[in-house]
Amino acid sequence: MASTYSFDIVSDYDRQELVNALDQATREIQGRYDLKDTKTKMDLGESTITVNTASEFALQAVHTVLQTKAAKRNLSLKIFDFGTVESASGGRVRQEITLKKGISSDVAKQISKAIRDNFKKIQASIQGDAVRVSAKSKDELQTVIQFLKQEEWPVALQFTNYR
């Protein structure tokens, strides 16, 4: 039996679920009466989604559809970082949506400080773009997970490698 238990706090998303959400959103956009003739295109890159559509009104509707489909597939809406709207050729508009992955050092420091302030017997260490939390009891780790889920963080948090 291990003397200490630990888990990792990461910020990630399931890429296949994102692909599925984009596919569903594309099908809904092609079928919706108000968006049918906009010739909207959504291109998924390595870490961005590029949306090209007819107007800013259509772009807002695309945002709504995309966020709805992502939420239905259990993707956090915090992974989307909407960039500035640019004008494209032919009177169209384009927008880059950056997909956030990993915990920045500032957020990792905030998380580890919150754990240190509220739980004296638990250690939190920053390891790259993740935070490792360790303690002598699994019950204490469960308490930390519940505490972190109740707080509002600027990134989506997942808890992995629980052992």
Results as ranks from 00 to 15, higher is better:
59 L>V: 15
43 D>V: 12
134 S>G: 01
126 I>M: 05
105 S>E: 10
93 V>T: 13
110 Q>A: 03
83 G>F: 08
32 R>E: 13
122 I>F: 03
48 T>H: 11
35 L>Q: 10
61 A>Q: 15
112 S>E: 03
56 E>Q: 14
98 T>W: 08
82 F>A: 06
128 G>K: 15
63 H>V: 03
113 K>C: 02
71 A>G: 09
114 A>P: 02
66 L>T: 10
123 Q>D: 13
100 K>W: 07
119 F>V: 13
40 T>L: 08
62 V>D: 09
82 F>I: 14
67 Q>F: 09
123 Q>I: 07
103 I>P: 00
84 T>Y: 01
137 S>F: 12
86 E>T: 01
119 F>Y: 15
131 V>R: 09
45 G>N: 03
32 R>P: 03
105 S>R: 00
90 G>I: 13
74 N>D: 11
34 D>L: 04
103 I>C: 01
54 A>R: 13
36 K>L: 03
70 A>H: 02
60 Q>M: 05
48 T>F: 09
37 D>S: 11
109 K>Y: 00
130 A>Q: 15
126 I>C: 02
99 L>Y: 11
57 F>L: 14
48 T>R: 12
34 D>C: 02
50 T>P: 00
126 I>L: 04
35 L>G: 07
108 A>H: 01
86 E>W: 00
69 K>W: 05
86 E>A: 11
87 S>Q: 14
65 V>N: 05
75 L>F: 09
131 V>L: 06
56 E>W: 05
106 D>Q: 09
76 S>F: 08
133 V>I: 15
56 E>K: 14
43 D>W: 00
82 F>S: 00
67 Q>D: 08
65 V>T: 15
69 K>G: 00
124 A>R: 01
122 I>W: 03
135 A>T: 05
94 R>Y: 01
92 R>Y: 11
104 S>P: 01
47 S>C: 07
131 V>S: 06
68 T>P: 03
69 K>C: 01
115 I>Q: 05
105 S>K: 04
106 D>G: 02
134 S>Y: 03
124 A>F: 04
85 V>W: 06
137 S>E: 13
41 K>Q: 15
40 T>F: 03
64 T>G: 03
33 Y>V: 06
57 F>I: 15
136 K>Q: 14
41 K>D: 14
94 R>T: 15
111 I>N: 02
110 Q>V: 01
89 S>Y: 07
130 A>N: 13
39 K>Y: 10
100 K>H: 07
69 K>R: 13
46 E>T: 09
